[in-house]
């Protein structure tokens, strides 16, 4: 399932992140890597950014990127 279809406040394990080098490196540096546990905090309307909790911090990810992040429960 992709992250954009996830539900709020449920812990997910990331199974795949976008391969694009720029996005991949940025996500990795912010603690969003394959195997990491994250949860969705908020969805913004009209396919706006998705706010996720990774570790002890919060990260905003655009909807388009979230569609390419695959997660499992």
């Amino acid at each position: 399932m992709n992250l954009a279809k996830g539900k709020k406040l449920i812990p997910y394990i990331i199974t795949e992140i976008p391969k694009d080098n720029l996005v991949n490196q940025k996500l990795l540096a912010l603690g969003i890597y394959e195997g990491a546990t994250i949860s969705i905090k908020q969805f913004l309307p009209v396919k706006g950014p998705i706010i996720i909790i990774a570790g002890t911090g919060e990260v905003a990810i655009s909807y388009e990127i979230a569609q390419h992040i695959h997660v499992k429960k």
């Binding site: 996500l27 912010l30 950014p49 911090g57 919060e58 990260v59 905003a60 990810i61 655009s62």
Partner: peptide
Amino acid sequence: GEKTALIMEIPP
């Protein structure tokens, strides 16, 4: 040019 998307840390 390259289109980038928002990936941003939110400070408390």
